[in-house]
Amino acid sequence: MSAALLIEQALNGLQFGVMLFLMAAGLTLIFGVMGLINLAHGSLYMVGAFACAAVATATGSFWLGLVASLVAAALAGAIMEIVVIRRLYRRDHLDQVLATFALILMFSEGTRWLFGSFPLYLDVPEILSGAVALPGGVQYPLYRLAIIVAGIGVAILLFLLIGRTRLGIQIRAGEADREMIAALGVDIKLLYTAVFALGAALAGFAGGLVGTIQSVQVGMGEPVLILAFVVIVIGGIGSIKGAFIGALLVGITDTLGRFLLPVFFGAFMNASDATAVGSALASMLIYILMALVLVVRPGGLYGAGT
């Protein structure tokens, strides 16, 4: 095993983590501020990817597609909040899960009705295609580097937004005490819609960005959604910082686990068994990580409960 391979895998883990962060940030914001479990967050990711693919194909510009993914997901999120989600804040979590699960089905079949059952085409823009040589003899796809940069950029913007702006103060206040902030004259309904649209836009952005190197198809959001939930549980629900650290932890653990565990078992087993045992264990690794974190810190790494 060479150093170049290890560096490449670490970068892969980082890129996967950054992508998970974009999903988890929206989810944790919505859960933190409104106390709402939104299973349909993965559908917003899908909306972003489809919007990006459709606009990129129609105009020939990936960048317009990316803008479209932000706009379409934010819009879908805002409409979803006003029409359905608003009625769920006072209900218990089971009702929210049921209603947002119904939304998943509607989004999926609606998308299929609009775009058909076949996966859409979406390719990396010319300027970001191919691989670049990094120090240490590592060949790395340029587009994945771009995802890392974009994700970290979004993370910095989010921190500034939450920590330094008026909207950020209102969001944090809403998390702490929603009656009090309403009493202080903040339009809580508008705030909730804005936060929901922001979270949706982040998911849509992730969809557009990642749809480019994955398959743009109905149901693409659900596998990512499960990982995003793992991330926010590890990071502590409601904490952007926790989501960021949790996402990187999950991304790196998953990638390195998939790669190193079969090698590890290969040291004292025959190759075929080592592959089978290693891959089986690798797929459990992030859940084991989650369990360990919860044992040590039941509220998650940066959760309010600890």
């Binding site: 095993m1 060479s2 170049a4 391979l5 490449e8 895998q9 892969n12 890129q15 996967f16 060949q139 796809p141 994945r144 990642v210 190197i213 994955q214 398959s215 693409m220 596998p223 990512v224 990638t255 998939r258 790669f259 079969p262 190759a271 075929s272 592959t275 089978a276 891959s279 690798a282 797929s283």
Partner: peptide, 24 residues
Amino acid sequence: ELAGEIYTQLGQTDYAAEIAQIRA
């Protein structure tokens, strides 16, 4: 000969780790 044999997760969407191993 087999240079490598990998079982990926069903429904996996990111193959960067596997591709790196193919390269190596």
